[in-house]
């Protein structure tokens, strides 16, 4: 048993390391959030990073334990060196790091414009992750729809509606500790749930992972999948699926778009000069 596996068995069997990681993440988020004149953002970034790093380690170790070191083609600590040679995992790790980091930046920066730009980067990361999964269409669509349309509109509104300097409400948070802790708890719960479902360590004669996991690792399954969801003609597959099985959903979505269009126009039209005038008079 390698050092990694040993570390993993000691860490993963009780669930407190996950809790610790989540707690670090929550504390970091709290420190990062705008809290008036209070300082500590750098510390927050560090704490947050520490939490995330612990989480990464736990996830990897969990995988090692679940799959068994021999059958696992990911050998984290040794692989780290090979990853530097731009291996497959390195791409994933980079994308994941960019996504999560820019997401954190996006919700913690004070200037809304910065937030929006960080969010754009986050979207890029997500799109990259989509592509990494083989979901080509989604990757492109995310960039086009989100980064191209939604985000630009938001920036447009921001330009229209942002006062000079930092508005007071951008320098304050509502119940920052509470919400950070709650989010941390949620992340911890989700991770532990996933971990307990996917990475049950082998005990006695029981196999490491559930049987249905083993079925998904066969060659036949991979062959089947490369004909289907990982097909070269991925887009054709989506189209076939979308316009046959989900035709009604597509129609409903189209109608929804139309309704939203009309609704947005109607709402925007109701903004009259009188509204602002009365506000000023009062």
């Amino acid at each position: 048993m390698s050092a990694a596996a040993l570390l993993a068995t000691t860490l993963i069997t009780p669930q407190w390391p996950y809790a610790l990681a989540a707690l670090l993440f929550a504390a970091g988020m709290w420190l990062l959030l705008p809290r008036g004149a209070a300082r500590g953002r750098r510390l927050g970034a560090g704490v947050c990073l520490a939490g995330l790093a612990l989480l990464t380690l736990l996830v990897h170790c969990g995988m090692v334990v679940a799959c068994g070191e021999e059958s696992c083609d990911v050998k984290w600590l040794p692989a780290l060196s090979t990853s530097l040679g731009l291996g497959e995992d390195f791409v994933f790790l980079t994308l994941a790091a960019v996504t999560v980091a820019s997401a954190i930046a996006s919700v913690t920066f004070r200037k809304p414009v910065y937030c929006a730009i960080w969010f754009a980067l986050c979207l890029m990361g997500v799109a990259g992750l989509f592509l990494y999964q083989g979901a080509q269409f989604l990757g492109v669509a995310t960039i086009v729809v989100y980064a191209g349309a939604i985000l630009v509109t938001i920036l447009f509104v921001l330009m229209l509606a942002t006062p000079e300097g930092h508005a007071y409400y951008d320098r304050l948070s509502w119940e920052a500790p509470l919400s950070s802790v709650l989010a941390g708890v949620l992340v911890g719960l989700l991770t532990i749930t996933t971990a307990s479902a996917l990475t049950t360590p082998p005990t006695g004669d029981k196999p490491a992972a559930p049987a249905w996991l083993a079925a998904k690792t066969t060659d036949a399954y991979h062959a089947e999948r490369s004909k289907n969801i990982l097909n070269d003609n991925h887009l054709a597959g989506i189209g076939r699926e979308l316009f046959s099985k989900h035709l009604i959903a597509v129609e409903v979505a189209g109608t929804l778009l139309l309704v939203a269009l009309v609704g947005a126009v109607a709402i925007a039209q109701s903004i009259g000069p009188t509204a602002s005038a009365t506000k000023r008079d009062s």
């Binding site: 959030l33 919700v107 986050c122 509502w174 709650l182 949620l186 992340v187 996933t194």
Partner: peptide, 16 residues
């Protein structure tokens, strides 16, 4: 889960 959590923090505590 992380993205969800981070978004949650933003949704709950940011006032803009």
């Amino acid at each position: 889960a992380l993205l969800f959590g981070i978004g949650l923090v933003g949704l709950l505590s940011r006032r803009n």
